[in-house]
Each structure stands twice: as structure tokens, then as C-alpha cells.
Amino acid sequence: MHLATYVGLAHRSERTLAESLRVVGEGHARHPDVLFTCRTLAGFSDDHVRQLEPVARRYGEQHGGDVEEPDRLHAAGLAEVRSGPVGLLRDLQDLHVLGTLVLTTWTVINQAAQGLRDHELLSIARSASGQTSRQLSWLNTRMKAAAPQALIVAP
């Protein structure tokens, strides 16, 4: 069963997202809202990783893609931040890309869980999708706020 591939992908990409959120938050700490919100949002992803553990035990977990479907897109996450207003914008955008990967992963898992009538997995996938959407909404909101100043007038 290929579900294990996706359970693995969810696990990895949530962990990457959490780490990247922390990196961006700390790196742009002079924007306190970015610092504190990124921390909160990283906590969401930590929770998902924790919730996935019993599921991963049941289905097994495929790391790094299986033989037939190797990972082609490497979402390695952000190890360091850019500087300045445009840098912040780009970093938020990268987080958004990562978040989208997480969200679509949950969408796929959600479909499989329904097919399997796996209530536990279904409820995890549902709540995780909801939380990931909140992460994406915030990133979107913050980018919209930062964009005009960063693109038009920033030094």
C-alpha cells in the first residue's frame, strides 16, 4: 500500500515546516509579530507530527520516497533567512510553498483515509488540514501587508 509513502511525506514535510517557521521567526525577530506567530504556527506542525506517530506505526512509513516514486521535488526547508523587507517577503513566500505541500499531502491522505474507513487517520487529516490552512492564511495575510512597502519604497 502506497499510503505509507504519504504518511512519510506528511511526517517529513510537517517537520520541515516547523523547523523553517522557527528559522524565519528567529531570523526576522525585529518584527515581533513574525517571531511570535511563527513560533505559534510551528507548534501546530509539531502537534501534527505527534499525532501522526501511532498512524505511522500502523501503516509503516516510507522515507525519502519508495523505489518507484522517488522524491523529485526536494523541500529541504529554510536553514537561514534573507535580510531586509524583500527578504522577509521571500522567506514568507517560501514558507507558503512548504505549507502548500503539507496541505496537499493531507488532502491526499484524507481521501485515502475515507477509502480505508480509518476514523483515526481521517480525524487527524481533517484537523491537520484545518490547521495548515490557518498557517497558510496567516502567511498570505502577512505577505499582503508587507508587499507594497517592500516592493515600492523599501531602501
Binding site: 509579530d33 506567530t37 505559534t40 504556527l41 490557518r134 492564511s137 496567516w138 498570505n140 495575510t141
Partner: peptide, 10 residues
């Protein structure tokens, strides 16, 4: 808005 994060509702 999302009261926890301030993300806007569309």
C-alpha cells in the same frame, strides 16, 4: 480574523 494568529478570513 483568526483570533490566535490574526490571519484574515476571506
Amino acid at each position: 480574523h483568526d483570533l490566535l494568529t490574526g490571519a484574515v478570513v476571506t
